[in-house]
């Protein structure tokens, strides 16, 4: 039963990771791509780590998986913020579909 739950978590995590990659290819500019990659890859990878911890089931592996999950949860949004701010400072404009850019107006 726990094995089944673990494999379910890994499968759903891989599905989210793949969707994030599809979004990374299809979205039009760097900011939208960051949205797709950050959200999906964070949750997808945490789910894969959690599923691995459930399947293997010993304390040591589970502890390492949880530490990795916490690191990803903290570093992934921070990295996305750094990249988007860097991209905006470097003058990369938003896609033509965008309707407003308050950051450029007020800088």
């Amino acid at each position: 039963m726990i094995d089944f739950l673990g494999y379910m978590l890994v499968s759903v995590g891989i599905f989210f990771d793949i969707s994030g990659c599809i979004g990374l290819v299809r979205f039009p500019d760097v900011y939208n791509r960051l949205q797709a990659s950050t959200k999906c890859v964070t949750l997808g990878t945490i789910m894969i780590l959690g599923g691995t911890a459930l399947i293997i089931g010993t304390g040591a592996i589970a502890g390492k998986a949880i530490i990795c999950a916490v690191f990803i949860l903290i570093t992934s949004p921070t990295a996305a913020h750094a990249i988007s701010r860097g991209a905006h400072s470097a003058g990369i404009s938003l896609t033509d579909k965008s309707i407003i850019d308050r950051y450029a107006e007020e800088k």
């Binding site: 979205f27 039009p28 939208n32 938003l94 579909k97 309707i99």
Partner: peptide
């Protein structure tokens, strides 16, 4: 691709 992006 239903997006309507921007910075607020």
């Amino acid at each position: 691709l239903p997006i309507k992006p921007g910075i607020v």
